[in-house]
Every structure is written in C-alpha cells, then in structure tokens.
C-alpha cells in the first residue's frame, strides 16, 4: 500500500570523474526506479559507486550521462536555486560523519534547514523542539556538537534531516562511525520513520545484517547494478 507512484527514476545514469587525463567511471549505466514509501538499501564493495549514486539522487551532483527524474522533474533542467530548494524541502541527508556545523548548538543545527526554507521563526522553533523531542535530545539542545557523543550527534543529524518534513531520507552509512548497539538504535529510528511516517528511505550500508531492514535491496558492483531484490511482504 505504500508503494504506489514512482518518486525517483534513474535512467541509464553514468558518472565519470575526470582526474586530469584519466577518466574514472564510477557509475556505468544505472537504471533504477524507486517508489514512494520504499526502504532501499544500497550495498556493494568499497568503490562500487554507492556514494556517487547517493550524491546524484540527492541532487548534490549531476550525472555525466543519463537522466534523473525526481518528483517528475528532470533535475538537470532545474536552476541552482530551485535545486537547493528541492533539496531543502524534499530530501533529508544523514551522513556517516554527522556533518553538523561545529560552531552552533544542536538546536540551531536542527533549525538550519528551516531557515533556508524561510519558515516563519515561531513555527520553526516549535518544529525544532518537537523534532528534538522525537529523537530524545530535548535536554541536550543547547550543546555544541562537540559536546555530544557520536550517537547523539547522529540523532541531531537525523533530527536535522527530518525537520523540513522531507519525503526522502538519504543516509550514506549512517551507522558507519557508531558501535553496533548505537547503530542499531539509529536504524530502529529510521525504521520507525519509514513505518510510521511513510518516509522513503534510501540507505547505503556495508553491514549486511542491517540490510534486513530493507524492503528493496540494490547491489552495486563496479558502477553497475548487480541485483535488485524486493521483499514481497513488508517487514
């Protein structure tokens, strides 16, 4: 019931990095269709192109060849500022290294996307408080990132990715820097978001144990899709 319309479509997507004379093909003709409400896990060996694919999906980079359709829009045809707004309103990023701004508090970090979206300040503060409450960090909201543990920082970054109420959450090895218990907590949190809020989640992981959370499993090898597995029943 969650998998209805296509949210994201990659059609024969290539990404070739140019390093001087040398060309490094990181993605070689990837075609994939991701539906709204899916929980996608991308696995593959190191260097297989997982992060490259995530960057393209997140509109942080442009493909060398092929098209990416996000919410019925060809992203290569959007202006810089439209792309930024699309990122801010539709996509929430969770990074392996948390990527919080070190000079501002957890609260301000979480509120930042709303400021870029020019949300009314009162509403933004309310929303930020609510989200911090959801990730269980209300009491730490005025700490600087460096005053938080890794797991707490990742929760702040989850809160930041959720605050704009995006449809898609992109997580590139969100548990990579965490111990397995904390990693499991973070995964549970994402799983809950998928189940209860109907978010589309796309996650890269090395940990095959975590891959069981996924509804769709995409395996990459040398920049190509090796396999796409879908569970028949939502788990």
């Amino acid at each position: 019931m969650k998998q209805n319309s296509t949210l994201l479509h990659l059609e024969n997507v290539w990404k070739i990095y140019k390093m001087g004379e040398v060309e490094v093909p990181a993605l070689r003709g990837v075609t994939v269709n991701i539906k709204k409400g899916d929980f996608v896990v991308i696995i593959g060996a190191s260097g297989s192109g997982k992060s490259t694919m995530m960057n393209l999906i997140g509109c942080l980079d442009m493909p060398s060849k092929g098209t990416i359709i996000l919410k019925n829009q060809d992203i290569s045809k959007l202006s810089e500022s439209d792309l930024a707004t699309l990122r801010g309103s539709t996509i929430g990023f969770i990074f392996q290294q948390y990527n919080l701004i070190p000079s501002i508090s957890a609260f301000e970090n979480v509120m930042l996307p709303l400021e870029f979206l020019e949300v009314d300040e009162k509403k933004a503060i309310e929303r930020t408080k609510k989200i911090l409450d959801i990730v269980g960090l209300s009491d730490k909201s005025h700490h600087l990132p460096t005053q938080l543990s890794g797991g707490q920082q990742q929760r702040v970054s989850i809160a930041r990715s959720l605050v704009g109420n995006p449809e898609i959450i992109l997580a590139d090895e969100p548990t990579g820097a965490l111990d397995s218990v904390t990693g499991r907590q973070i995964l549970d949190m994402l799983h809950k978001l998928w189940k209860e809020e109907g978010k589309t989640i796309i996650m890269v992981t090395h940990d095959l144990k975590l891959a069981k959370y996924a509804h769709t499993r995409i395996e990459l090898q040398d920049g190509k899709i090796l396999s796409i597995n879908q569970k028949s029943e939502v788990g």
């Binding site: 997140g58 942080l60 810089e80 500022s81 930024a84 707004t85 990122r87 801010g88 309103s89 990023f93 990527n99 919080l100 701004i101 930042l112 996307p113 870029f116 979206l117 930041r160 990715s161 704009g164």
Partner: peptide, 12 residues
C-alpha cells in the same frame, strides 16, 4: 557543502 546539502542557495 553541508549548508548546500540542507537547502542553502548560492545567494544565501
């Protein structure tokens, strides 16, 4: 880069 990822436009 972080700010751009979370929705900052060039002019911001």
């Amino acid at each position: 880069g972080i700010m751009k990822a979370i929705g900052a436009r060039n002019k911001d």
